[in-house]
Every structure is written in structure tokens, then in C-alpha cells.
Design a protein around this nucleic acid. Structure first.
Lengths: 186, 186
DNA sequence: CATCTGTTTCGATAGATATCTAATTAGACA
DNA sequence: TGTCTAATTAGATATCTATCGAAACAGATG
């Protein structure tokens, strides 16, 4: 929905069209003249604006009069202000807001971890965050794992063990690799 | 500027990116993992968001941490509310706001002219508006000119004469054509 | 200095979309 | 009904852009 709104406005022709119909009603012909475009092109753009609810159509004979739908504009103007709205855009692959908050609380400005939380509930998102520093489908030596972990916290042993314990990393013959998120024990 | 803003947000990947960095700082790697995209792609999108002033970059070692620039979002949220702002979007090819007002005042709901203003100052934008109903580079017979003019006002003789007088239309051997706006006597 | 790691830049390619002409639809009018 | 006018839809084409792999770049580390 929000995406549709932005797409509708992400073209010079449509922005100018909206400017014109914001001033007063215009017919397709008028707009085509003012914009130096052909009617089909204008019609196409108006259809997109209409689909997004940004213009309103009044039909009189065979003439179609388009005008701005200010309400929609106001509505989206408000929508893009709230962080909550934006966070939902992140889609299904994102961590939840709650998990994000945990990680944020434990991160220092330089991106390292302040500490390792005692409770399992808080530990899980931290470990998930850490596990995402590994690429799926790539193999790591123990030294590589240590290096990556150590960049976030000095206690590499504990973290390495926990990552394996939660089935985020797997180990065999001293070689580590990242497991798909579906397998993680959260 | 406003166009750049909308373009930056008119893609699903960038909307989701913005959602992620709105929650907390993220590195390019993290984002690439979360979005199931390669680093170059993410980097490219972040560059666009940055160009539009929507994200802020904090560099720590090799790692680039991106975060939302809420200020920009608020600023544009306000910008799209005002009709005045929108009208300016119409760009250079549009009539000025003042001229638009004149035309609007003389237009009846059906798109015809109420009257022909007496003062030159008001007559010019009306004539310009009328002249734009003709296509540049096309030739019109006098009958065609009459037909087009008559659709807006019954006094076709006066209008036809004025259009030629203001060098909006030219005539030779009973054939009319529209002159470029640069030549119009306004 | 040599190397390693995270990021960006480059070049190529596939997919989306803006625009046009031609054809079609739909209202008005005789 | 047939014609005229304004608008839309269809189809074709050219431009733009999202994405990737490869290469270049820059900071950190030994």
C-alpha cells in the first residue's frame, strides 16, 4: 500500500500531473497539452494515480475531469512519520521489534556487545544476531569463527559453544557452517 | 528534490531497508543477510537512500553502520501536505500560479469560459490556455480553429483574432498553426 | 609491507516501465 | 442508427533500473 503510494509519485510526469490537478480540475486533453504528452500516456499515469487514491475522477459527457484527492495525501503524510509504520515495512524476514530492542540494549556505540545476558529469553536474539554474521553455505575454520565472534565480544569460547548449542552453527571435524534459520533453536 | 525522495522510496527493497535501519543501526552485511540480497545490491540501495538524505552513515573500521535519518522523513512528510508545494512541482512548462487562478476564475464547471476579460493582464493567460488546445506542428483549417475555439466560448471570431494577434497562432493562406510559446506576445 | 575483511565501484544482463501509434470503447447528438 | 469526440486499452519499442559477479578500494592487523 505504502509502496504503491511512493511508486505513484516516483515519476516526474506524475508529480507534475498531481501539481496540475492540485490547482484545479483538468481534463485529459488539457493535461496532455500542458505536459506535452499524448493522451494515452497521460491516461496511463492518471490511472496509476487513481489506483493509489491520489486523484478523483468526475465524468461529464465523455470528458473526464481529474482533481487531487487531498485526503489520501494527508493520510500518507501522517503514515510515514511513525517509526512503527516503517518497521512493519521490513517484511516477514525481519527480527521482531522486541528482539531488536534486546539487541540494541546490549550493543555499544562501536557495535560490540556490552555483556552476555543471563536469561535465555534475552540470549536468543543476541545469538541470532551474531549468527547472522556468518554466510550460509560457507565453511569456517574454528579460527575464523573465533575471529568473527571476538569482534563482538571477548568471550569467544562461550559464544561459539552457544551458537552450536542453539543449532545456529554446526560443527564437524573442526569445520563450522551456518544452519538455516528454520533449524535454529530459539 | 521531492522527486528524488519519492524515487528513493519507490522500491520494495529500499522500503524494507529503511524499516530495518529505522529499528536500529545495521551494517551492510547484516542487511544483505536479512534481505537475502548480495552486498553490492544493498550498497547500491543504501547509496540512493543516502543521496536522498534518508539514512545516516557511521563508519567504524571497515564496517559501515547505517541508521534512519528521521529528520528528513519528517521534513518531507510536512512538505507533501501543502498544496502550494505541490503546485510548484508542476515544473517549468506549467502556467504560473497566478495565471492559473485567472483561468480558474473564468472557467465554468463544464470547462467553458464565462466571459472574455476586458483587461489585457487577465486576457493573456486565458488566451494562452486556449492556445494550448492546439497541437504544435499541426496545420488547421479556419473551420477547425473555429470548432476548437467554439467549444470554449461562443465568440469564435474575437478569440481567433486575438490568438493571431498575440502570436500564439499564425495564419497564411487560410491555414493556421500554433507557434512555439517562446514567440507568444504575453 | 602483505594480508584479510567489509564495502564500494564497474560492467553486464534481465526485468520493469514510459511513451508512442493504432485500435477500441463510450457518451452525445443529429 | 451513424457520426463525432474524449478517453481508454492494446501492442510495440526504447529507456531505465535492480541485481549479480568480478574487481578495486580502504581500514585493520600482524
Amino acid at each position: 500500500m505504502l509502496l504503491q503510494f511512493f511508486k505513484a509519485l516516483a515519476h516526474e510526469s506524475r508529480l507534475r500531473l498531481l501539481g496540475l490537478v492540485a490547482a484545479r480540475e483538468h481534463s485529459v486533453q488539457e493535461l496532455a497539452n500542458l505536459m506535452a504528452l499524448k493522451e494515452p500516456t497521460v491516461s496511463h499515469h492518471l490511472a496509476m494515480l487513481r489506483e493509489a487514491g491520489l486523484v478523483r475522477l468526475r465524468q461529464d459527457g465523455n470528458t473526464h475531469w481529474y482533481a487531487l484527492e487531498q485526503k489520501t495525501l494527508s493520510q500518507f503524510s501522517r503514515a510515514i512519520l511513525g517509526r512503527e509504520q516503517l518497521a512493519t515495512l521490513a517484511g516477514p524476514k525481519t527480527q521482531s521489534a522486541g528482539e531488536d530492542r534486546v539487541v540494541r540494549n546490549y550493543l555499544m556505540p562501536d557495535g560490540r556487545l556490552k555483556a552476555f545476558p543471563a536469561t535465555l529469553k534475552k540470549r536468543r536474539p543476541i545469538l541470532a544476531w551474531l549468527a547472522r554474521h556468518f554466510d550460509e553455505g560457507r565453511r569456517y575454520s574454528e579460527a575464523e569463527v573465533n575471529a568473527i565472534v571476538e569482534r563482538r565480544h571477548h568471550d569467544r569460547e562461550t559464544f561459539r559453544r552457544e551458537l552450536v548449542g542453539h543449532r545456529m552453527l554446526a560443527r564437524k571435524d573442526g569445520v563450522y557452517w551456518r544452519l538455516p534459520e528454520a533449524d535454529w533453536v530459539l
